[in-house]
Simulated assay, not measured.
Amino acid sequence: MNTKKITIADVAEEAKVSKSTVSQYLNQRFEYMGEQTKERIAQAIKDLGYRPNIVARSLKQKTTTTIGVIVANISHEFSTQIVQSIEKYCNESNYHIIVCNAEDHPEKEQKYIEMLRAKQVDGIIVFPTSNNKELYQSLNLEDYPMVFIDRYVPEVKVSSIMLDNKKASQLAVEEFHRLGYERIGIITNSTKNNVTPRVERIEGFVQALESKNLEVNESYIKSVSLHEISKELVQMFSLEQPPEALLAGNDLALIEILQFTKKHQLQIPSDLAVIGIDDVSFASIYNPELTTIAQPTDEMGKKAAELLISQIQGEKPPFQQIYRFSPTLLSRSSCTGIKGGIL
């Protein structure tokens, strides 16, 4: 068996070009390279089974062509969709990604940032908690490439990719109102750590109710930890006048609502109309099909990757620019205007 390691010199000899030309090809510097030359090199690499030494190249170029992605909670379908989009763009740009799940714990987030720095990743995309401001500030002072997604930290000058969260709530309230619902509520995960989308969605919800001259009933507005949502729903539906319609602030809150309605034998939409922010994969196969507010995750993930790679390649990042993306209402059967009593 031939165990000889194939080198750039072997590829150059096979393709009848210089080693520097092969190096330029591997680094995608094609400006002065003819198509026939590229084809010969590509064929030589294929025939010889050449595999570049990524570690050696990283040391020479002072880059690992690797970025870190720290998600707040991998259980969110939104997070996995964003990661898929980031990975696709990075792969097309010859970058690799390392995905870390911080579970909304600032301490875990800090450990992952330190680990990724130790692995010399070229930059980080992060769904930030609000408790690591000093760490983010120190990375900023180093001009370390970094992009926030889904959230922003006002004190830290890092650009963020975000949904127009107030608009998302507004679309839901407008749909409920259009279909005749008046007692409208919202439930979402805790805003304890000032998680941007949760705060903004509740603010947008209240503003939308007021704009439609609908009652803002604090008993219908809940922001609690995930394991407390079921208990809050029990209290909400024990009221003399429970809500007729509920907006789920995200996909995990939506699942809690669906489990609650099943357990208590409430029919959607006759007993309760439901709209969820995040277009979950099962929305169109659930019975009834679920009306959702979709986030453009493909565009959001791509934009985050574009911004980070441009920073890695030397472009100075803008001053804490917030890129807002528009939500889309996907009207289905869980909100039809057919109201019935549940008492």
Results as ranks from 00 to 15, higher is better:
Arg151Trp: 04
Tyr152Glu: 15
Val153Gly: 03
Glu155Asp: 14
Lys157Arg: 15
Lys157Gly: 05
Ser160Asn: 03
Met162Asp: 02
Asn165His: 06
Lys167Asn: 12
Lys167Trp: 02
Ala168Asn: 12
Leu171Tyr: 08
Ala172Phe: 02
Ala172Thr: 06
Ala172Tyr: 03
Glu175Arg: 10
Phe176Met: 04
Arg178Gln: 08
Arg178Leu: 05
Arg178Asn: 09
Leu179Lys: 14
Gly180Asn: 07
Gly180Glu: 04
Tyr181Thr: 10
Glu182Lys: 11
Glu182Met: 04
Arg183Leu: 09
Gly185Cys: 10
Ile186Arg: 08
Ile186Met: 08
Ile186Thr: 08
Asn189Ala: 12
Asn189Gln: 14
Ser190Asn: 01
Thr191Cys: 08
Lys192Thr: 01
Lys192Ala: 11
Asn193Gly: 03
Arg198Tyr: 11
Arg198His: 13
Glu200Cys: 12
Ile202Cys: 12
Ile202Arg: 15
Ile202Asn: 12
Phe205Ser: 11
Val206Gln: 10
Val206Arg: 08
Gln207Glu: 14
Leu209Ala: 01
Glu210Cys: 10
Glu210Gln: 14
Lys212Gly: 02
Lys212Val: 03
Val216Phe: 07
Ser219Trp: 12
Leu226Trp: 11
His227Ile: 07
Ser230Ile: 14
Lys231Ile: 09
Lys231Leu: 15
Met236Arg: 13
Met236Cys: 14
Phe237Gln: 00
Ser238Ala: 06
Ser238Lys: 08
Gln241Gly: 09
Pro242Met: 10
Pro243Lys: 14
Ala245Pro: 07
Leu247Met: 06
Leu247Cys: 01
Ala248Glu: 00
Ala248Asp: 02
Gly249Phe: 06
Asp251Gln: 06
Leu252Asn: 11
Ala253Glu: 00
Ala253Leu: 07
Leu254Thr: 07
Leu254Pro: 00
Ile255Met: 11
Ile255Leu: 14
Gln259Pro: 01
Phe260Gln: 01
Lys262Cys: 07
Gln265Gly: 09
Leu266Met: 13
Gln267Met: 04
Ser270Ala: 07
Leu272Gly: 00
Leu272Arg: 00
Ala273Ser: 06
Ile275Val: 07
Ile277His: 08
Asp278Ser: 04
Val280Trp: 04
Phe282Tyr: 15
Ala283Tyr: 11
Ile285Pro: 00
Asn287Thr: 13
Asn287Glu: 09
Pro288Trp: 05
Glu289Arg: 10
